[in-house]
C-alpha cells in the first residue's frame, strides 16, 4: 500500500465522518426547531440542503476514484464499500431533517404548535442512536452499537404508540387534523431515521469485523 493510497483512504474516512456530523446537525436542529416552534431555525435547516448534497457527491466521487485507482481488498475494500452505504444513510438523515424542517414551516404557517412532547422524546432517542452509530463508524469500534436492535425496537414501539395517540386525537377533534396529520408525518420521518441508524450500525459492523448482520 502506497503512502498516497493510505492518505487517500484516511481522508475519505474523515470526509465521510464530517458529512455524518453535518447531516446529524440538520436532524438535531430540525427537532430543536420543532420543540421550540422556531420557524427561523427550521428555515436555516432547509437552507442546508444544497450543501448536504454537495458534500455527499464530493465524498461519493472520492470513493469511486479510490476504487478505480487502487482496487482495495479485505479491510480496505470493506471500509470503502461500507462507507459508500453509510454516506447514503447520512444523506437520508440530513434529507429527513430537511423534510421535518419543511413540515414545521407549514405547521407554523397554518395553526401553531400543540403538545408534541412524545414526538420530541422519539426524536431525542433517534438522535442518540444516530450519534452512537456515527461514533462507532468514526472510531471503527462496534461497542456503541451493540444494543442497536433493542433501541430500534423501542423506537418502533414508540412510533406506533404516538401514531395511535394522534389518530385518536384526530377522531376526537377534526379541527386539529391539519396539525396532527403533520405530526404523523414527523413521527414517520423519525422512525425512518432510526432505521438509518441501524443501517449505519450494520455497515460499521461489516467494515470492522467482515460479518454481515441484520439489525432491523
Amino acid at each position: 500500500m502506497t503512502e498516497k493510497e493510505r492518505s487517500d483512504l484516511s481522508q475519505i474516512h474523515i470526509d465521510a465522518c464530517d458529512m455524518g456530523t453535518f447531516a446529524i446537525a440538520m436532524l438535531r436542529d430540525s427537532i430543536d426547531a420543532f420543540e421550540r416552534g422556531d420557524a427561523q431555525l427550521a428555515h436555516e435547516v432547509r437552507e442546508r440542503k444544497v450543501e448536504l448534497k454537495k458534500r455527499f457527491i464530493a465524498v461519493e466521487e472520492s470513493m469511486f476514484r479510490h476504487l478505480a485507482l487502487y482496487q482495495p481488498v479485505a479491510r480496505d475494500m470493506r471500509e470503502i464499500v461500507a462507507s459508500l452505504r453509510v454516506i447514503y444513510n447520512f444523506e437520508r438523515i440530513g434529507r429527513m431533517g430537511y423534510d421535518i424542517a419543511d413540515t414545521i414551516q407549514n405547521l407554523s404557517q397554518c395553526c401553531g404548535l400543540a403538545d408534541p412532547e412524545k414526538l420530541i422524546i422519539v426524536g431525542r432517542k433517534v438522535l442518540a442512536m444516530i450519534e452512537d452509530a456515527l461514533d462507532a463508524f468514526t472510531d471503527r469500534a462496534i461497542t456503541p452499537i451493540r444494543n442497536m436492535r433493542e433501541r430500534d425496537s423501542e423506537i418502533d414501539r414508540l412510533y406506533c404508540e404516538v401514531m395511535r395517540d394522534l389518530i385518536r386525537r384526530m377522531e376526537q377533534n377534526k379541527d386539529d387534523v391539519p396539525i396532527l396529520a403533520r405530526y404523523v408525518i414527523i413521527d414517520r420521518y423519525l422512525e425512518r431515521c432510526g432505521d438509518q441508524a441501524c443501517n449505519i450500525a450494520e455497515m460499521t459492523t461489516y467494515m470492522v469485523t467482515g460479518e454481515r448482520v441484520e439489525i432491523d
Binding site: 479485505a74 479491510r75 475494500m77 470493506r78 460479518e211
Partner: peptide
C-alpha cells in the same frame, strides 16, 4: 479477499 482470517494475510 473480503475477510481473511489471519492478520498476516490481510
Amino acid at each position: 479477499f473480503e475477510n481473511p482470517r489471519k492478520e498476516l494475510t490481510e
